[in-house]
């Protein structure tokens, strides 16, 4: 973002720094990445760590992502924290479908990224079999610092996106 000072040599115009010039992408992405509204899909111990992350000790609100919503229609960040079974998978897919674009997904912890140690008949081996994922967090469960790092990385990613380029569904 750059300020464009009005030249003092033009006496008719004395608007000062009332003008700001920037790119649309920069200003939209700035707004989007600093007001992420997470929907926590918490199914296991990773969700407990997420509670610590949004609480006062680690305070995710410092990065503008503390306003946890429990309706997918009001959220733009789906945060899967925990094990997802095949029986739950259609529910997760439906929640993802109910979120409005633009939306992002963080898979938190070993289970959400790969199924973890549940190498068995009932556990989804990574939620990217069901929905697209932007950021993966390692750990079993990951510490709150890892959650904050994931949100930070997602903010960097959002900063590179283009508003004009239509986001393909599921991209």
């Amino acid at each position: 973002m750059t300020f464009k000072p009005v030249p003092a040599a033009v006496p008719e115009v004395s608007l000062g720094d009332a003008f700001v010039t920037t790119r649309a992408d920069a200003v939209v992405n700035w707004a989007r990445r600093n007001s992420l509204w997470p929907f926590p899909f918490g199914t296991a111990c990773c969700a407990i760590e997420f509670m610590g992350t949004v609480s006062s000790m680690f305070d995710l609100s410092r990065f503008g992502a503390e306003l946890v919503r429990f309706s997918p229609r009001q959220a733009d960040l789906l945060l899967i924290a925990g094990t997802v079974t095949y029986k739950q998978a259609p529910i997760l897919r439906r929640i993802y479908d109910q979120m409005l674009e633009p939306k992002w997904v963080i898979a938190a912890g070993a289970c959400a990224t790969s199924g973890g140690f549940y190498d068995c008949y009932c556990t989804v081996p990574g939620i990217d079999e069901i929905i697209p994922v932007d950021i993966y967090i390692a750990g079993c469960p990951p510490r709150p610092e890892a959650f904050i790092e994931a949100v930070y990385q997602l903010q960097q990613k959002i900063g590179t996106e283009s508003v004009a380029a239509r986001k393909a569904v599921g991209a």
Binding site: Y86, K87, P90, D119, C120, Y121, C122
Partner: peptide, 25 residues
């Protein structure tokens, strides 16, 4: 197990890494 599941997974001859997706909730 979900209603589209076929087989009985705790039988010792069930291939325990066989995945069975559920399409309808």
């Amino acid at each position: 197990n979900h209603h589209e599941f076929s087989g009985h997974p705790l039988r010792k001859d069930y291939p325990c890494q066989k995945r069975q997706k559920l399409s309808v909730n």
